[in-house]
Structure formats: C-alpha cells, structure tokens
Amino acid sequence: MNSSVIARLSGIGYRYGSHQALEGVDVSLKAGEVTALLGPNGAGKSTLIHLLLGLLPVQTGSIELFGGSPQARSARERVGAMLQISGVQDNLTVLELIRLFASLYPRPAVPEQLIDEAGLHGLEQRRFARLSGGQKQRLLFALSLVGNPDLLILDEPTTGLDPAARQRLWRVIERHRASGASILLCTHYLEEAARLADQVVVLHRGRKLIAGSPDDIRSHVPSSLIRVRSSMTVEAIRSLAAVGRADRLEDHIRVMSGKPTATLKEWLAADPDLVVVEVTGADLETAFMTLIEKDDDTIAEAA
C-alpha cells in the first residue's frame, strides 16, 4: 500500500436482496486529504461508508484500512465517524457522552478542549434529549473527534447547522486535514465539497461515475454558467441557441450554455431588458447535476 494511502476500497460490490447498492467501486483515501463523496439519494454513499467502517460485511471486492481489516480493533481506534442516522442515549449529558467515548480510545482528546472546538461550551451538563437539532449535530461531531482519528468519516455533518456552526465545523475539518488526518465527507452541499475537498468521488446508481479534484470534475462540463435577470419563461429560454439547461432561482435565472456568446446574442434580441449578472465556468453543483443527468440519459437510452 502506498504510504500516504490509508484506505483502499477495490472493486466493491454490495447487494441488499435483489437491489444492487454498489457495483465495482474503487476509492482510495489519502492522509492529509479531504475526499468528498457525492451522489443523489440512494447512490450508495451510506453503504460505502458502512463497509469502510466494517459495519457491513464485504460481499465483493476488498477493503484495506490502515493496512488491515476495517473490522480490526486497531483500525477502529484510528477512525472517528459521524453517521447520518446517529443517536445516543437520550438521558446522558454532553460531558458524560464525551467521557464515555473518550474511554474507548487509546489517545483520547481532552474533553474540555473538544467541547470548545465543537461549540458546546455551557452545554456540558445538558442531556442529549434536551439539546436542539444543531447542538445534537455538534455533539455527534465532537464524538467523532474524541479519539483523535487518523480517518474522520462524516456523513452529512452540516445538515441542520446554522451558518456560523457550519463555518466552525469547516475550520475544524481544515485543521484536522492540516495535521495529516484523512477526511471522508459525504454531503449534499456542493459548495461545502467545493471549498473543502481535495478529491471528489461521485457515485450514481451504485457505480463510481467520476473521481478527481473539484477542478477536474468542473472541467468535464465544457459549458459556461450564465446568470441573468429576464422576463422570459424558462421554456422559451430552453429554446435559445446552445442552451443545455435553464432553472429559475429566487432572483435570477441560471442557464448552462455550450456557446454563451451565441446564447446571449439571441436572448438580447428576444428580450431587450435582459440583465446579465455573470458568465462563469460551471460550478461544482452544475457540473455534478449535468453529469448525473447525462448518466441518466445514457442509461435511459440503453434501456
């Protein structure tokens, strides 16, 4: 195993009864990197995470974590996880839970420092059941950090967090990456992935659709992103030259175009009041959506 690769999943397949949740997926996680695992609901992200954590038995392929089995105690001592469906015992306090988890690891973090880092100061004696949704998320995040993990697995960690808490969590992730930890981040917030990820892995229908840096992913969509204000209907916009997709957002219209100059020329002729807000390359979200739609179209055509 390459010294910087801490986890390698090769040819992973997993089936729940007749449903093929994963098929032939290869992913490597490196020390000091954030890997964003993206995909629509049901793409197989949580199954992949459960396999990596040793919560599900490997059916097809192989998984190597820190040079051994993900089910080995020595591997689990180096991993911290925040799972999507995660609850703890409702009647235990924040401090009791942190101390309980700290007792499980050979090199636990100092509870007081962890409480500060997760923004839980003043909540130490509060029971889990009496925390708000965001506070619960922050506690679960703190529990994933208790063991000072070399691999941090975060499944939708910022769901339900306010912007300040989200920013704080991002800073903690960046600090852990800088200290050499590997982070596997599963998220539906594409701007989060764009900001944090060194590597992006997109899963769709149980297969790995694409992997690379955020720039690599964006470069797979040659179109430009045009943001405008216009009174034209989305249907009319879709009939303009070279328009790939068009969506009306809150205060503007977002259009993907393979030939932005031709699109805008035609659009100005049809709508003289058109206000162009910006023309940029595709962002990660647009690239992600385009790739998923393209894959859906390919599968539909094949069927």
Binding site: L53, I85, G87, V88, L104
Partner: peptide, 9 residues
C-alpha cells in the same frame, strides 16, 4: 446508538 457504538472500538 448501536450502529454508532459498532463504529467505535
């Protein structure tokens, strides 16, 4: 809770 514990040592 049970799943979370299984992911720890």
């Amino acid at each position: 809770w049970f799943t979370l514990l299984r992911a720890t040592p």
